[in-house]
């Protein structure tokens, strides 16, 4: 494996999926698979105006780095990128990006899936809903299904 260190970014700005994907393949010919996962903000049946993402600065980067290093130890990936946004995000906008590259597809699929399952349950981010009727909605509750998804690894 010739993996470079995972690239982890926690930022307010949007990201460019195509550019991030290209960065893991540029200048090399040993990559046979690139998996990208983007998580977007849903409008929840037209009721949601925006999500507000709060994060724990410092620990967010540290925890994502720990998860990415585990993925890099477990699968023969050639590159990993994780970008997680914070701040106010409108329906249709990007929230999170995971890019995994490898010689063969299975490692890239598995590493990307593992990263997302553990980001959901271990990365210190919290979503608050802002409703279209002008009210500030609730903090999004953690789902048991997300814990179960992380347990399967």
């Amino acid at each position: 494996m010739t993996a470079t260190d995972p690239v982890i970014r926690v930022q307010r700005e949007d990201f460019d999926i195509a550019a991030e994907s290209a960065r893991l393949t540029q200048g090399r010919s040993d990559v046979g698979a690139v998996v990208t996962f983007a998580g977007l903000c849903r409008d929840e049946g037209g009721t949601l105006a925006a999500l507000e993402l709060e994060h724990y600065p410092g620990m967010a980067e540290a925890e994502i780095t720990r998860i990415a290093k585990q993925a890099a130890e477990r699968w023969p990936v050639t590159g990993l990128t994780v970008i997680h946004r914070f701040g106010k995000i409108a329906p249709g906008e990007n929230i999170v990006l995971v890019v995994a590259s490898s010689a063969h597809r299975q490692a890239a699929f598995d590493a990307a899936s593992f990263l997302m399952d553990f980001l959901k349950t271990r990365a210190p981010f919290w979503k608050k809903e802002h409703r279209k009727d002008g009210t500030t909605g609730e903090w999004v509750e953690a789902k048991d299904a997300d814990d179960k998804a992380a347990e399967r690894w």
């Binding site: 999170v96 997302m116 980001l119 210190p124 981010f125 919290w126």
Partner: peptide, 10 residues
Amino acid sequence: IALFPPMTGG
């Protein structure tokens, strides 16, 4: 030390 609810990122 940080105290917080279960996380809901991703």
